[in-house]
Design a protein around this nucleic acid. Structure first.
Length: 376
DNA sequence: AATGCGTGGGC
DNA sequence: TGCCCAAGCAT
């Protein structure tokens, strides 16, 4: 029988053997010091600027983010400036970047940081997690990179790297797999340079431990990689199962009057929430014009007549196949507010172009103008 | 907890 | 061209 003293001394086996843990830490950090990319947000220590980069990088590639990040910081250089800005201005700064709820949450979080934390970002992952738009990943990223807290993070890159290093089974989305990955990330993140280590993990996944054609011969932790040892790098992790995109058809009102077009701001939630558009209403694929006119009339709260067609703009999103049918419309009265929209405005094409608008609707606007929407 | 939410780049 | 993907979060 074991004595209580002995039971207390025998702790459970560590998740990662200390020697292996140190080899992975040292290998990735040394590689990062040699190979890290010169990215603009790695030249600042401003937590706000780092936070902004993390939000923009969600589901978005580095090359896309760089110009947005620089432009946005010039326009909204501090948390206070962002918090004080009207939401439509913030959305205009986000135009073309996609996933616009990120911009809405960023704005709300900035306001909370001012009201709850005196304008300074809280420095721990636990506090950051209470702010809008801060999930587990972003909280860990900002806490570790901007404040040096040894907080773990798991993004798509880290999930891939760890699932290969440790042969973690299961498909993306599997709960046991996610839990295992977070445990591993927690066990690995060091007390010294946690932010650099987390970035090294992600950078390694983005450039060496890639989804396709990983560069195992250049890998600094190859000796530690179970998938490599067992010839399973190509099968881990298994690919995501994606749902087929749903079709969505919008009747789009192109209403011109004295050189101006009617623009509408969408409801705050859902697809393209809070963005400006040529007023649109969802219709069935084969809806005849008079029925489309009825839908648009309901949305605008005004009588609407279809005068002709200005073409169709198609746009493929990850989860939707959009079809925008441009209908030239007129009506006796020119509405300035409408039940289905937050706001209406009559704009010249130049004014319209500077509004926060989805890329799909921006293309529709260009198509309508070049099809002669403003001519008779 | 499964689903909705954008976009541009790579091949 | 069409289809894949990329530093997630909210509900």
């Amino acid at each position: 029988m074991s004595s209580p003293r002995k039971r207390k001394a025998s702790s459970p086996a560590p998740l990662v053997e200390p020697a292996r843990r140190e080899a992975i830490r040292a290998g990735l950090l040394a590689w990062y010091d040699r190979q890290k990319r010169d990215l603009p947000w790695r030249r600042t220590r401003d937590p706000y600027a780092i936070w902004l980069s993390e939000v923009m990088l969600q589901q978005t590639q580095v090359a896309t983010v760089i110009p947005y990040w620089e432009r946005f910081l010039q326009r909204f250089p501090t948390v206070e400036a962002l918090a004080a800005a009207p939401l439509p201005d913030v959305l205009a700064g986000w135009r073309g970047l996609g996933y616009y709820s990120r911009a809405r949450n960023l704005h709300r979080a900035a306001q909370e940081i001012v009201s709850r934390f005196g304008g300074r970002l809280p420095s721990t992952a636990a506090e950051l997690l209470t702010l809008p738009g801060f999930g587990r990943y972003t909280s860990g990223a900002v806490a570790s990179i901007a404040f040096g807290e040894p907080a773990p993070l798991v993004d798509g890159n880290v999930a891939r790297v760890l699932s290969r290093l440790f042969e973690v089974e299961g498909v993306p989305g599997d709960k046991a797999r996610e839990a295992r990955l977070w445990e591993l990330a927690t066990a690995l993140v060091p007390g010294e340079r946690p932010g650099d280590f987390n970035q090294a993990l992600m950078e390694h996944g983005a450039t060496v431990c890639r989804p396709e054609n990983p560069l195992c011969l250049l890998c600094p932790v190859r000796e530690q990689c179970l998938a490599y040892r067992h010839g399973r790098v190509d099968e881990l992790p298994p690919a995501k199962v994606r749902a087929a995109p749903k079709r969505m058809t919008l009747a789009v009102a192109v209403w011109a009057h004295e050189g101006r077009l009617l623009l509408a701001r969408r409801a705050e939630k859902g697809l393209f929430g809070g963005l400006w558009e040529l007023p649109a209403a969802e219709v069935e694929d084969d809806t005849p014009d008079p029925d489309s006119a009825t839908k648009l009339a309901e949305a605008l709260g005004a009588e609407v007549r279809v005068r002709g067609h200005l073409g169709t703009v198609r746009r493929q999103l990850t989860h939707r196949a959009l079809s925008l049918r441009l209908l030239r419309v007129t009506g006796r009265q020119h509405p300035t507010r409408a039940p289905a929209f937050q706001e209406l405005r009559w704009c010249t094409p130049d004014e319209a172009s500077s509004l926060g608008m989805s890329t799909a609707m921006h293309k529709a606007l260009e198509a309508a103008v070049s099809a002669g929407a403003l001519r008779d």
